[in-house]
């Protein structure tokens, strides 16, 4: 039971401030999102970003309402027997809309200690490699998710309570993997053509806002 260090605590005031205001000032303002893509592609990208964020927010709200409605239903004696399946559908939707939104804003969890300790040049090259390999992995999973969804569609599996085809609720998986892959591919390109190091097409690596970006 040895305390990890003997110094009096000197917590960085910035960290305290950031923790105190919770997430408020870190909320991503979709209106201010600037796509890393030029022209029409940028407009499409910004529109996708907006759709993702709406799906995320509505998905979470719907999940709360659905779960509570089930409680109320049970108390008054008529259970919503498809409640669990609806939540399954929502969690899949949230996860796959969210991974691409997180990629877009550089919010995926990573262990960046060694990365951060590297000098600029190798770090930049490594960032290109990370983004490119991650993109490749996501595209691979996109392909096999499509295969899986088509398989499920051809097998005709139904959700037992809702009695709808099961593939309807998993179709978000290939979509989410694809959009995530796209974000990482663009990040790789952005790192090649730009002089700075980018965590995503819109997020610059840097220590000033490390609290926000290093997650």
């Amino acid at each position: 039971m040895t305390p990890d260090d003997e110094k009096p605590p000197r917590t960085d005031p910035d960290i305290i401030a950031a923790a105190e205001v919770a997430n408020v000032d870190e909320d991503i303002d979709d209106a201010e999102y600037v796509s890393g893509l030029p022209g029409v592609l940028g407009v499409i990208d910004a529109a996708i970003a907006r759709i993702e964020s709406v799906l995320l927010a509505l998905g979470v709200l719907a999940m709360a309402v659905n779960t509570m409605a089930n409680v109320v239903g049970r108390v008054i004696g008529s259970t919503i027997y498809f409640s669990e399946e609806l939540n399954q559908a929502l969690i899949i939707l949230i996860t796959f809309a969210g991974i691409s939104y997180a990629a877009r804003h550089g919010r995926h969890i990573r262990m960046s200690a060694f990365f951060d300790a590297m000098p600029f040049r190798p770090r930049k090259m490594l960032m290109v490699a990370i983004a490119a390999i991650t993109a490749a992995g996501m595209f691979l999973l996109t392909w096999y998710s499509v295969v899986y969804v088509l398989e499920q569609a051809s097998r005709g599996r139904l959700l037992p309570a809702l009695q709808i085809p099961q593939w309807w609720i998993i179709v978000w998986a290939p979509l989410g993997f694809f959009l995530t892959g796209l974000q990482y591919a663009l990040t790789a390109i952005k790192n090649v053509i730009d002089k700075d190091i980018w965590l995503s097409t819109s997020t610059l690596e840097g220590y000033d806002d490390s609290v926000e970006e290093e997650v």
Binding site: R74, G77, S78, T79, Y81, S83, E84, A161
Partner: peptide, 12 residues
């Protein structure tokens, strides 16, 4: 179970 008169409650 509805026919039996109970309130069927699906639960994981």
């Amino acid at each position: 179970y509805q026919a039996f008169g109970a309130t069927p409650t699906p639960l994981p």
